[in-house]
């Protein structure tokens, strides 16, 4: 069952993330794809995450699809202008890729090629609008396509914010993303089910599937690092203490992630597990969560 059919059928969806490595060695990705097939509905393939130059998302999507794992093609606006974005979307469709996640993209200055010229010819809302046009059989200037695309487009949202402006801007942008063709949302990592439940209450009216982001904690230091450096991520002290005190950090990290996922089942329409290096542990996390 495809991600689209799962969400439309109201099934609790599970997606995860696969990050291509820097280089041409695909051994690990293929191994991970084998482990995840049948356990998740689809896997996001990141687009040069953190602005670090790597193997591309489209080729990797094609690769994992060949292994039987449904890909979600992550596409940022950081590196391509509207010609390249539209052309890559046509290419992705031809390769059988059905899902696209539209993102703005991190700044090149934060990655390993800080001298690069940032593009941002389109932003994430305009990219969704573009996907919608291609699905209708036209490019963004209204020129007719010979053969259209049929993408199931998604977008992201950050449920937690540290200022009123940031919180409200997220809601306005979410509304625009939906108006321009977003059919599902994946969120930034969440750690507090109560705050997340309040967010879900607020977006209830949008009537759109939301997959809550889960990043398993590997250590107390990782949690503190994310609190300090990752916008929109707030790990409560209680969980940091739990990680600090745990003798088996891996078991504690898996337990926290599994507990979070259990508590989310009645609240949202699915989870998006970003294992960041722990891809091979995803089956164990899902087992612990009873998913």
């Amino acid at each position: 069952m495809s991600l689209k059919s799962s969400l439309e059928a109201g099934k609790f969806a599970i997606t995860c993330e696969v990050g291509p490595l820097k280089g041409t060695d695909t051994t690990e990705i293929e191994e991970v794809a084998g482990l995840l097939t049948g356990r998740v509905d689809a896997a996001n393939v990141t687009d040069q995450q953190s602005s670090v130059m790597r193997l591309g998302s489209m080729a990797t999507c094609h690769l994992i699809k060949g292994k039987g794992l449904e890909p979600i093609f992550q596409m940022t606006c950081r590196d391509r202008n509207r010609l390249a974005l539209q052309s890559d979307l046509l290419s992705a469709h031809v390769l059988g890729i059905e899902n696209v996640l539209a993102l703005t993209g991190d700044l090149p200055a934060l990655g390993d090629q800080p001298q690069a010229k940032p593009v941002y010819d389109l932003d994430s809302v305009q990219l969704l609008w573009t996907i919608q046009r291609l699905n209708e059989g036209f490019d963004i200037n209204g020129n007719e396509l010979q053969g259209k695309t049929d993408f199931f487009a998604g977008a992201v949202v950050t449920p937690e914010a540290d200022t009123e402006a940031k919180r409200e801007l997220q809601f306005y942008k979410m509304e625009k993303k939906i108006a321009n063709g977003a059919r599902f949302f994946q969120t930034q990592a969440i750690y507090d089910p109560d705050t997340f439940a309040r967010f879900m209450k607020r977006v209830e009216g949008f009537k759109i599937p939301i997959l809550a982001g889960i990043i398993p904690l590997k250590s107390a230091a990782m949690a503190r690092f994310m609190n300090k450096n990752v916008a929109g991520v707030f790990v409560p002290d209680e969980l940091i203490d739990k990680m600090a005190k745990a003798e088996d950090k891996t078991a504690a990290g898996i337990e926290i992630a599994a507990d979070l996922m259990k508590s989310l089942k009645g609240i949202c329409q699915g989870v998006h597990l970003m294992a960041i290096g722990w891809e091979k542990k995803v089956p164990a996390i899902l087992d612990a969560a009873g998913l």
Binding site: T104, D106, L107, P118, Y120, D123, S124, V125, Q126, V156, V157, T158, A165, K166, L169, Q170, Y172, K173, K176, Q188, A231, G232
Partner: peptide, 10 residues
């Protein structure tokens, strides 16, 4: 990022 449709969330 010269975004015209709202904040990036960063």
């Amino acid at each position: 990022k010269s975004l015209t449709n709202g904040a990036c969330g960063g």
